[in-house]
Deep mutational scan, measured.
Amino acid sequence: EKTLKIVADSEEEAEALAKELAEKYNLEVTIERNPEEEGKYVITIKIKP
Protein backbone atom coordinates (compact mmCIF):
# COMPACT_ATOMS: atom_id res chain seq x y z
CA GLU A 1 0.00 0.00 0.00
CA LYS A 2 1.30 3.47 -0.92
CA THR A 3 0.17 6.80 0.51
CA LEU A 4 0.23 10.21 -1.15
CA LYS A 5 -0.59 13.42 0.74
CA ILE A 6 -1.68 16.67 -0.93
CA VAL A 7 -2.10 19.99 0.91
CA ALA A 8 -5.02 22.20 -0.19
CA ASP A 9 -5.64 25.87 0.61
CA SER A 10 -9.31 25.46 1.51
CA GLU A 11 -11.76 22.81 2.63
CA GLU A 12 -13.79 23.33 -0.55
CA GLU A 13 -10.72 22.79 -2.74
CA ALA A 14 -9.80 19.69 -0.75
CA GLU A 15 -13.31 18.23 -1.00
CA ALA A 16 -13.56 18.86 -4.75
CA LEU A 17 -10.18 17.26 -5.45
CA ALA A 18 -10.83 14.31 -3.13
CA LYS A 19 -14.22 13.63 -4.73
CA GLU A 20 -12.76 13.75 -8.24
CA LEU A 21 -9.89 11.42 -7.35
CA ALA A 22 -12.13 8.96 -5.52
CA GLU A 23 -14.67 8.77 -8.36
CA LYS A 24 -12.33 8.91 -11.34
CA TYR A 25 -9.61 6.59 -10.07
CA ASN A 26 -11.50 4.54 -7.45
CA LEU A 27 -9.08 5.47 -4.66
CA GLU A 28 -9.51 5.65 -0.90
CA VAL A 29 -9.35 9.37 -0.08
CA THR A 30 -9.59 11.18 3.27
CA ILE A 31 -9.45 14.87 4.22
CA GLU A 32 -8.23 16.30 7.51
CA ARG A 33 -7.05 19.66 8.84
CA ASN A 34 -3.32 20.21 8.53
CA PRO A 35 -1.97 20.54 12.09
CA GLU A 36 1.22 22.18 10.80
CA GLU A 37 -0.43 25.01 8.83
CA GLU A 38 -3.54 26.89 9.95
CA GLY A 39 -6.25 27.01 7.29
CA LYS A 40 -4.73 24.21 5.19
CA TYR A 41 -6.14 20.74 4.62
CA VAL A 42 -4.36 17.47 3.91
CA ILE A 43 -5.81 15.04 1.37
CA THR A 44 -4.51 11.52 1.94
CA ILE A 45 -4.77 9.03 -0.92
CA LYS A 46 -4.17 5.34 -0.31
CA ILE A 47 -3.23 3.24 -3.31
CA LYS A 48 -3.73 -0.45 -2.79
CA PRO A 49 -1.50 -2.88 -4.66
Rank of each mutant, 00 (worst) to 15 (best):
K40M: 04
E36M: 11
L17Y: 07
K24M: 07
E12W: 11
K5G: 03
K40F: 04
A8G: 02
E37C: 12
R33S: 08
K40H: 09
A18W: 04
E37H: 14
E15W: 15
I6Y: 14
N34M: 13
V42Y: 05
V29N: 00
A22F: 11
D9C: 10
A22G: 11
E37P: 05
E13C: 12
E15H: 13
K48F: 13
L4A: 05
K46P: 04
T3L: 13
E36Q: 12
K24R: 11
V42H: 04
D9I: 04
K40P: 02
N34Y: 13
G39N: 08
L4G: 04
I45P: 01
K24T: 04
I31T: 02
K5A: 06
V29P: 03
E23K: 12
K5D: 03
E23R: 14
G39S: 05
L4F: 10
A18Y: 04
K24N: 07
S10M: 01
Y41F: 14
L27G: 15
L21Y: 11
K46S: 12
E12Q: 11
E38D: 11
K2I: 15
K24A: 09
E37Y: 14
A8R: 05
E12I: 06
E13A: 10
E20R: 13
K40Y: 05
S10I: 01
N34D: 15
N34Q: 09
L4E: 04
E12V: 09
I6V: 08
I31R: 01
T30P: 00
E13I: 08
E20P: 01
T44Q: 04
L17A: 03
E38V: 04
K24P: 01
Y41Q: 02
V7W: 12
P49H: 15
E28C: 10
T3K: 09
E20N: 10
I31C: 03
T44V: 14
E1M: 06
A14K: 01
E12P: 04
V42F: 07
V42P: 01
E1R: 05
L17I: 15
L4M: 11
Y41E: 00
A18V: 09
K19H: 07
S10R: 02
E28P: 11
N34V: 12
N26E: 05
E38N: 12
E12N: 06
E32H: 09
E11N: 05
E13R: 05
N26A: 08
K46T: 13
R33F: 08
I31Q: 01
Y41D: 01
E23S: 10
P49C: 09
K5F: 13
L17W: 12
E13N: 04
R33W: 06
I45E: 01
L27V: 12
P49W: 09
R33Q: 14
E32N: 07
L21G: 00
K40D: 02
K48D: 10
K5W: 13
T30D: 03
E15Q: 13
L27S: 15
I43W: 01
I47R: 04
E15D: 06
E28I: 12
L4T: 06
L4Q: 05
K40I: 07
T44D: 01
I43A: 01
A14N: 00
S10Q: 01
K24D: 03
A14G: 02
I45V: 13
E12G: 06
K19N: 05
T30Q: 08
K5C: 14
L27F: 12
V42T: 07
S10K: 02
A16T: 09
E15G: 04
E11F: 15
I31Y: 07
T30F: 08
P35I: 10
E28W: 03
E28D: 11
E11H: 11
D9A: 08
L4W: 10
V7G: 10
E13H: 08
E37F: 14
L17K: 06
A22R: 15
E1C: 13
S10N: 08
L21W: 06
E15A: 15
I43H: 00
A8H: 01
T30E: 06
E32S: 12
A14H: 00
T44F: 05
D9E: 10
S10Y: 02
R33V: 10
N26C: 10
Y41T: 03
E13Q: 10
V29G: 02
P49I: 14
A18Q: 05
K48Q: 11
E1D: 13
